[in-house]
Computed example of a mutant assay.
Amino acid sequence: MQTLLQAEGVSFCTPQGRPLLHGVNASAAHGECVALVGPNGAGKSTLLKLLGARAMPTKGRVSVLGHDLAAWPAPERARHIAVLGQTETADLAFRVHDYVALGRLPHQHRAGRTEHAQAVDQALHTCGLSALAHRALSSLSGGERQRAHLARALAQQPVLLLLDEPTNHLDLAARADLLALVRGLGITVVAALHELGLVPSFADRVWVLNRGALVATGSPDEALGADRVADVFGMELVHTRHPRHSGMLWSFERKAAA
């Protein structure tokens, strides 16, 4: 598959000189879903900021569609990359429709009224919010509100969607529904995920970060083998055959002390 996103030798230091990322090399293809995993403090949020050009690497480069993000004008980046952060905030008095329509701002002077309306309606439909379009954000459940944030991002019509812990504060059903929705979008997605058990059903590829370095990349089975999980997370990976089909379930237990 053709590469859409490329990180080449990406490092990042704080203004105080503290290194947070070290020489990250990673790529994602068109339509590929990538799970970005690692323990707290591994550098996941920092890497997502660099992939979305919310910060620039101290060394190395990030490119999307062959364009170096450092040289790509900000309006062009906004028309191609959408970001859903850990703590999305919005005026809760907004109607869902009007909030989602904010995603059209990067296209404001490049599309007509009909195209804008169609993009918003499609985003609402994709996220299952058409019937809630005239409700206030304040009236939505946590899962519905997260889908509204996602719909606003999709209204941008991005080729790359970056998600930072998108399932935080959601119940089990809402987590599964949200990731299934994202997986079905057909666009390139990089999602930082806290729960490793969510990875196998979501990800085509996994990037494992530890102490600011990319220590593994590959399919879920390749990148998250038992030894890797024990080394990076201090957990024991347990595979269990699904009771109703041939797939495997993943669970994790605290690694016993030596």
Rank of each mutant, 00 (worst) to 15 (best):
M1V: 08
V10M: 08
F12E: 01
P15K: 07
Q16E: 15
A26G: 12
A28F: 02
A29G: 09
H30C: 10
E32H: 06
C33K: 05
V37T: 13
G38F: 14
N40M: 11
G41E: 10
A42N: 07
K44Q: 11
S45G: 06
L47P: 12
M56N: 00
K59A: 11
G60N: 05
S63Q: 09
L65C: 10
G66N: 09
A70R: 15
A71Q: 11
W72G: 03
P73E: 05
P75T: 05
P75F: 09
E76Y: 04
R77W: 09
A82Y: 06
T87G: 08
E88I: 02
T89N: 10
A90T: 11
L92I: 07
L92N: 00
A101Y: 03
L102Y: 09
R104K: 10
R104A: 09
H107I: 04
R113E: 15
T114L: 14
T114S: 15
V120C: 03
L124T: 10
L129D: 04
A133D: 07
R135A: 12
A136E: 14
S141I: 05
A148N: 08
Q156P: 08
Q156M: 03
Q157R: 15
V159C: 14
V159H: 07
L162V: 06
L163C: 04
L163D: 00
D164L: 00
P166D: 02
N168T: 12
L170P: 15
A176S: 08
L178N: 00
L179T: 06
R183W: 00
G186I: 04
V189I: 03
V190L: 01
L193A: 14
L193G: 14
E195I: 13
V206K: 03
L209N: 01
R211T: 06
G212I: 01
L214R: 04
D221T: 13
A223E: 02
L224S: 02
L224D: 07
V229H: 14
F233N: 08
M235F: 01
E236K: 12
V238D: 03
T240H: 11
R241S: 11
H242C: 04
P243Y: 06
G247V: 08
F252W: 07
R254I: 15
K255W: 13
A257G: 13
A257T: 15
A258H: 15
